[in-house]
Amino acid sequence: MTKLAIAVKLDRCVGCHTCSLACKMSNNVPDGMLWNRVLTEGSDVVDGAQGVYPNLTRTYLPLACQHCENAACQKVCPTGATYKDENGRVEINYDKCIGCRMCMAACPYNARVFNWNEPSRGGNPAYGDKEVPARGKGVMEKCTLCKERIDRGEAEPMCVECCPARARVYGDLDDPESEISKLKATGNVRILLEERGTHPQVFYVQ
């Protein structure tokens, strides 16, 4: 079996948002929407901090679809539009999506974004990977782990390729020899909202 995932090394993440824009570019994500966001933990401002000056910490937390093994979004989807594919990815069949947004409400990670209106993409709308399908008004979208790139044989999702700090590791959790499996085996791993039982494949190295 194959279980594709991304690990984020939190000690290396400098919160630069390059992953967010690399993803937006490659996946033709419309104006005002991101599949991958960089949060600053415990702060509601960009580059904020936890604590009181000068006793401060800051953790950047890049957040996208966690590609859960037990995906809450998939369970509530009434049409089967959201599915778990043979490579362990949570994907959306856009043609089947009826825009009910049950998945959006179910996802504890707030990873999904919805086309409330006809998407706009500024003065150069046709950006992105040529194989990424178009999405129109009323359709849900989110990180696909760059399905189209990977399925035609490219090595890494765009966010991983572009990360300036090399904080992101992509690979197959079912391959014990992969770098990502070895990272997970160290045990120095943080899973987001583990108590929800969603079993995210995406994980964070502390």
Binding site: T18, L21, A22, G123, N124, C162, P164
Partner: peptide
């Protein structure tokens, strides 16, 4: 082999308002 958010933003920026 590098790029940053500013480099990527050029996809929109060079055609921008």
């Amino acid at each position: 082999r590098t790029v940053c958010l500013k480099g990527i933003s050029e996809v929109e920026h060079i055609y921008g308002a």
